[in-house]
Design a binder for these strands. Structure first.
Ligand SMILES: Nc1ncnc2c1ncn2[C@@H]1O[C@H](COP(=O)(O)OP(=O)(O)OP(=O)(O)O)[C@@H](O)[C@H]1O
Length: 724
DNA sequence: TTGTATTATATTTTT
DNA sequence: TATAATACAA
């Protein structure tokens, strides 16, 4: 069969053997850029084309939604199927289930959470961190526990850890006795129990619950377990080194029968320890699955020899890891540079001037020298320029950034050595700036703005976290799940209806005592008002009238229409106009939310609404990254996982930043920081610049950092040390 | 109840 | 340094 041949043709022999190992557990353990993701994608296609596996029998788990989309697209290409724009939105026939752990679990729970016998149903709301903290506060105040003694942030973190370790409230005392002193332990356990009850009452789940509850379903309910074990005969998992215990159990339970579990990963790249990732999942895979066939991929296709040399030198200092060989046939390339600059602004200016030099837009002598050093790969950058001129349709974030950039389509630069340089016509997408903390993006942003360089920031304050967006989403969430008290509290007085804490307490209690009967509430408060009763009834009645009108229209309107309908009929737009100086911008954002809804689906009713809300709850900023919009991308090293760029700038290579100050004492955390450094370095295909400053503004104070211990003292044969 | 002013507080990475 | 929590006046 020629399709199968084509699939295998694009792989080396080691990759081919891994792809063709159809049955049983398979571990692909390999370094950065060795084609792990490629192997996973090709295996997906291979199973269908060669083995005749029905697509819907395959589950592929990726680390981001974006990776899921790309994998689906690539697999269809390999199978000669026409591309479809549609995303994976359910467990459809004739398509494999491809998604993140969270999105796959969210869908399982939509179908089956009712089986748990608690108050949750398929319309559940997904709580983000802010919602969780509000819920915890509510629980604390009900239990009369002092907020100052038990910081909701810290509680949230503990409960998150518990769930990632599959610890239920009853087991909390045993499992966390080494982590907390006894009196605290006892109280946190109580809070945990109350919190879970509260979530059930308001029909909500937090991020960790998505996995936690799914694993409980699979573990304790044989019929459900069998259903999914039969549904997915083949399970593929990318980035396995960053799975936590709950995810490990999820895979183990699903694969328990057929054992067709195919995982790929790189222990050098485990960087999500703070999210419960357990390196031992991958290191002990062969012990947990004795029949495992292991494949090592040792050829790197991404980076130049010079970049790999540095990467290997950095990671060699770690102890808790498998030894791996990584080589490449790629050209030696230019040496990575470690550049010392004055401060964080100079850091940003270095990035800009270096881009100008590399793309030959500068006439300065330095740039000619550096041009001479370049390898021939630069050529195709120029070819790409023309095609990439038009700014892409892009996601929400692109639009937001574009509007922030204003009307200036081209970038005019003044390099510090005074010659004006234009950066237009340059494909900025081949560059990326990586940093350890989001806060570092601020200085970069300022300088880029000064110099009119188009940029986009991944992470930080996200579009969906803007106030007006959260307000509108709260209305939508309430329509999908009217028990969601956290959303109700948010919108009950927006726009202002004269409802403060007292009336809110009264209303919340009434609803909880009356089974969240909104129709009943409207009647009850209506009759109170009719009887001429003063007090809360008069204030809350308009809200219930609004709610009943909106929910009556749910089936008639698309999500986008509903968004506008809410903003208009609730008086939200007017409220913005009356109270906000930048109300046009905020109104624009709301209309942009509506466009996002259209892009998701034009369907009507609860089903469409639920899907849209789920999508929004689970998107990460990185999902909006596309290569069409012409802008320099800035992101954390964490977000860059799995990506590659021709030129990478890593900024802030300093003690205290990378490794981060909070990790320098603990050897395990220090190793994770070093892996983070390794991940950053190995994103680069051709050129790599690591910068560090002589002085930097940190939390208001001026500090004089040392160069990062990860690169300090690296041989001049491996890196070029530069002082600006 | 609402809006503003002051003060405290924590500043790593994210689904 | 920013944001959140709190206090107080209108
Ligand atoms: N056999 C091959 N022939 C040519 N190019 C390949 C081959 N295998 C992988 N590549 C290329 O190497 C690069 C890295 O591949 P991929 O992203 O799959 O690696 P990875 O191991 O998942 O990397 P990482 O662990 O860093 O995320 C990609 O550009 C890919 O197209």
């Amino acid at each position: 069969m020629s399709i199968v041949k084509d699939i295998l043709k694009q792989l080396n022999t080691a990759q081919q053997s891994a792809v063709a190992q159809v049955k049983g557990p398979v571990l692909v353990l390999a370094g950065a850029g060795s084609g792990k993701t490629r192997v996973l994608t090709h295996r997906l296609a291979y199973l269908i084309a060669q083995e005749g596996v029905r697509p819907e029998q395959i589950l592929a788990v990726t680390f981001t939604n974006k990776a899921a989309g790309e994998m689906a697209l690539r697999a269809r290409e390999l199978l000669n199927l026409p591309a479809v724009a549609k995303r994976f939105t359910g467990f459809a026939l004739a398509t494999p289930a491809i998604g993140t752990f969270h999105s796959v679990c969210a869908r399982i729970l939509r179908e089956d959470i009712g089986a748990l016998g608690a108050l949750w149903n398929g319309n559940y709301t997904i709580f983000d961190g802010a919602d969780v903290r509000k819920a915890i506060k509510q629980v604390l105040s009900e239990a009369q526990i002092s907020l100052t003694d038990f910081n909701p942030r810290i509680i949230a973190k503990l409960l998150d850890q518990a769930k990632m370790r599959l610890v239920e409230p009853e087991q909390f005392l045993d499992e966390f006795k080494d982590d907390l002193p006894p009196p605290v332990l006892k109280i946190v356990q109580q809070i945990y129990g109350h919190y879970q009850n509260y979530l059930a009452e308001v029909n909500a789940l937090d991020f960790s619950d998505l996995l936690f509850k799914t694993v409980l379903l699979l573990r304790d309910y044989p019929l459900i377990r069998q259903k999914y074990q039969n549904r997915w005969q083949y399970i593929l998992v990318d980035e396995y080194q960053d799975t936590n215990y709950a995810q490990y159990e999820f895979c183990r339970l699903l694969a328990a029968g057929h054992q067709n579990l195919f995982v790929v990963g790189d222990d050098y790249q485990s960087i999500y320890g703070f999210r419960g990732a357990n390196l031992d999942n991958i290191l002990n895979f062969t012990r947990d699955y004795p029949k495992t066939k292991t494949f090592l991929l040792e050829q790197n296709y991404r980076s130049t020899q010079s970049i790999l040399n540095l990467a290997n030198a950095v990671i060699a200092k770690n102890r808790h890891q498998n030894k791996k060989v990584l080589w490449t046939e790629n050209p030696r390339g230019v040496l990575p540079q470690i550049v010392e600059v004055e401060d964080e602004r100079a850091e940003a200016e270095f990035v800009i001037s270096q881009i100008a030099k590399l793309t030959g837009k500068s006439k300065s002598t330095e740039s000619e020298e550096s041009e001479k050093r370049q390898t021939q790969e630069l050529e195709y950058e120029y070819e790409d320029q023309e095609q990439c001129q038009k700014p892409g349709r892009g996601g929400i974030l692109d639009r937001v950034m574009a509007s922030r950039r204003g009307e200036r389509p081209s970038a005019r630069l003044n390099i510090s050595r005074s010659r004006p340089v234009r950066l237009d016509g340059i494909n900025l997408n081949t560059f990326v700036v990586l940093y350890r903390t989001n806060a570092q993006s601020r200085a970069l942003e300022e300088v880029l703005l000064d110099w009119n360089v188009p940029y986009k920031i991944i992470g930080g304050v996200r579009f969906y976290e803007r106030q007006e967006i959260k307000d509108l989403l709260a209305y939508l969430r309430l329509l999908a799940n009217h028990r969601d008290l956290v959303s109700l509290e948010r919108v009950i007085n927006i726009p202002p209806r004269g409802i403060g804490p007292k009336t809110w307490q009264y209303l919340a209690t009434w609803l909880r005592n009356n089974n969240f009967d909104f129709a009943g509430a409207k009647q009850f408060f209506g009759s109170e008002v009719a009887r001429g009763m003063a007090g809360p009834a008069k204030k809350v009645l308009p809200f219930f009238t609004l709610w009943s009108a909106l929910s009556g229209e749910l089936d008639k309107l698309s999500v986008a229409e509903m968004i506008i309908q809410i903003a208009e009929s609730s008086g939200y737009f007017e409220h913005l106009k009356a109270t906000q100086l930048n109300f046009t911008e905020r109104e624009e954002n709301i209309r942009e939310l509506a466009s996002a809804a259209v892009r998701y689906s034009t369907g009507r009713g609860l089903e469409a609404l639920r899907g849209f809300l789920e999508e929004i709850a689970l998107v990460s900023d990185i999902d909006s990254l596309n290569d069409q919009s012409q802008a320099l991308t800035l992101m954390t090293i964490h977000s860059a996982k799995g990506l590659e760029f021709e030129t990478v700038f890593m900024v802030g290579l300093e003690q205290g930043l990378l490794p981060h100050a909070s990790a320098t004492l603990n050897p395990a955390e220090l190793e994770e920081e070093r892996r983070l450094c390794y991940v950053g370095i190995t994103r680069a295909r051709e050129r790599l610049y690591l910068t560090h400053t002589r002085q930097r503004q940190l939390y208001g104070a001026l500090i004089y950092p040392q160069v990062s211990e990860f690169v300090a003292g690296v041989d001049r044969k491996i890196v070029e040390w530069v002082r600006e």
